[in-house]
Every structure is written in structure tokens, then in C-alpha cells.
């Protein structure tokens, strides 16, 4: 066995347990050639149960092998989890979005993966199953180990789907990024927000920026700052200062200096919060 495209989950799990750690799962496989090849690969991209986006038990369930293109054009995601649609449209290029998957974006654990940043802002939970057929549910931000390394061991465990609470009345989400070029470019900073407004005041908020730490990072202090505040000019100014002040970032010769990146975190968080809040108009059905 070396490259196996499986058609059932059972087949996938059996293949993994049979090769006792020497096989690992892939879906889009776009990053395959960047790594050392394992002994064998189990391709999940044709598994029907993980290639659909559906509403289930009041949640949006996004199969791990849903491509970025499919997620970005899903009417459900566009209507109820707009940040994710925007994050998915920002990945790489159309060719990469057509084959790269949401699950891969999370499991590859790149510090500023666009879809993952959006998922974390939305409060997405990951559903996983291991070779012992045990399932667990985990917040997406808890799946990161270190730079480009996930806590999910792809030789033993399969990410099945991502669950997102839909943005309903009074809730909005948004994603934005800043890069040198408008396609085929990693961002200097990307940021996403989910916000719930009541009577014009922020009741709930999640603000995420990257690359800040190995995982896309929630800006907890800034979130606290905006609770019970209106999303107006004054608040946004304070958000900008707070967000930039809250993070410690690294500079990179290829993208930008640490100081500028820190400044951008402030600007982008304020901008993305504003867009999310605009979408959270209670008059509308959601974002």
C-alpha cells in the first residue's frame, strides 16, 4: 500500500491502523512536496461524509475535505459565517483553493493560515476520530503545537469536520488581510472578528490576528475592552491601540518588520471589527 484514495471512513481508519504509524492522511495534498514523504498516504478527499457543508443540529458543519473554493462559495457559509468565506477566498491562488482543503489549512498549522484564522474567530470546534474509533471535539485554536506543527497526529487521527455556530440576528463576522500582492502571497497580517451586538453595544466578541504566535491568536484584552461598547470611531481608535499593544510579533525580512506588523495588527483588527459590526445589524438575518 502506498497511495490510497479511500471511499469510506472505515477504510481510512483501517489503513492507518494497519500501517502502524507509517501512513498518514492527506486531502488536497498541495503541501505534500514541501515535506518528507511518508511511507504511504491515505487520501480522504473522496470521502462523502467529509466533503459537505451542511446545517446540522443548529450548527454549520464543514467537512474537513471541503475545498477552499467550495467553502468560499457555499451559500450557507456566505450567509452565516462570512469570515470563513472571506478567509477561504484569500488562500494562495484559485488553483490552490480548488484542491486545498479547510482541514489541511488547520492541520498544516501554518501560523497565518487564512481559513484557520477565520475559523478561530468564529469559535469553530473540530471533530476528530482516531484509529481506536474514539472521537473528540476540540476548539480549533487548541490543535496547534508549534510553528507549522499540529497536535493532531495524521498517522493516528483524522479531522472529520469543523462545527461553527451560525451568525444569526445581531451577529456578524469578517476576515481581512494585508499582503504585498493580491494573490499568491502570505499575509503580513491577517485578522478576523465575530461580534454580537445588542442595542448597538457589543455583547460578545472574538478577535483573532496572525501571525502573532504559532497559532492564530485571540486578542483577549481587546475583546474585553469592547464589551458593552458601541463600535464607533472612538472605540475603534482604542481597539487599534489596544490590539497593537497586546501582541508581541516577529519581523521577517520577506514580509515586514516586527514594529510595522504590530502596527498592522491594530489597524486590521479595528477594520475587521468594524466590518463585522456593520454586518451585525439586528435588522438583518445575520451576516
Amino acid at each position: 500500500m502506498s497511495y490510497l484514495t479511500v471511499s469510506t471512513l472505515e477504510e481510512a481508519l483501517t489503513s492507518l491502523s494497519d500501517s502502524s504509524g507509517k501512513a498518514r492522511v492527506v486531502a488536497g495534498a498541495t503541501d505534500l512536496f514541501l515535506q518528507d514523504l511518508p511511507h504511504s498516504l491515505v487520501d480522504l478527499s473522496a470521502l462523502p461524509e467529509i466533503t459537505v457543508v451542511e446545517e446540522k443540529d443548529g450548527l454549520i458543519s464543514i467537512g474537513a475535505a471541503v475545498t477552499h473554493t467550495a467553502a468560499a462559495s457555499s451559500s450557507l457559509i456566505l450567509a452565516r459565517a462570512r469570515a470563513l468565506a472571506e478567509g477561504c477566498s484569500a488562500v494562495g491562488s484559485p488553483q490552490i483553493r480548488n484542491i486545498g482543503t479547510i482541514g489541511g489549512n488547520v492541520i498544516n498549522a501554518a501560523p497565518a493560515a487564512d481559513a484557520a484564522v477565520a475559523l478561530i474567530s468564529l469559535g469553530a470546534e473540530a471533530v476528530l476520530i482516531d484509529v481506536n474509533r474514539e472521537t473528540r471535539q476540540e476548539a480549533v485554536e487548541n490543535l496547534y503545537w508549534t510553528y507549522n506543527r499540529s497536535l493532531v497526529d495524521s498517522s493516528k487521527e483524522i479531522l472529520l469536520r469543523l462545527l461553527v455556530k451560525p451568525c444569526l440576528g445581531g451577529e456578524g463576522s469578517a476576515f481581512t488581510r494585508f499582503a504585498v500582492r493580491r494573490a499568491l502571497a502570505l499575509p503580513m497580517v491577517n485578522a478576523a472578528a465575530r461580534v454580537k451586538l445588542e442595542n448597538g453595544l457589543v455583547k460578545k466578541v472574538r478577535l483573532v490576528a496572525a501571525p502573532v504566535r504559532p497559532a492564530p491568536t485571540r486578542l483577549i484584552q481587546t475583546e474585553e475592552l469592547v464589551i458593552n461598547q458601541p463600535v464607533d470611531k472612538d472605540t475603534l481608535k482604542r481597539v487599534e491601540v489596544s490590539a497593537a499593544g497586546e501582541v508581541e510579533v516577529r519581523g521577517s525580512q520577506l514580509r515586514c518588520s516586527a514594529r510595522y506588523r504590530q502596527h498592522l495588527v491594530g489597524v486590521l483588527i479595528a477594520r475587521v471589527l468594524k466590518i463585522a459590526a456593520d454586518r451585525a445589524d439586528p435588522g438583518k438575518a445575520g451576516d
Binding site: 504585498v180 500582492r181 493580491r182 494573490a183 499568491l184 502571497a185 520577506l254
Partner: peptide
């Protein structure tokens, strides 16, 4: 690389 030495795309 062409990822890091950036030439314009159609969107730019």
C-alpha cells in the same frame, strides 16, 4: 522563488 520574489498578478 516566485512566491517570495513577487511579480505582479492580474489583480495587482
Amino acid at each position: 522563488s516566485l512566491a517570495d520574489y513577487k511579480i505582479p498578478t492580474a489583480l495587482d
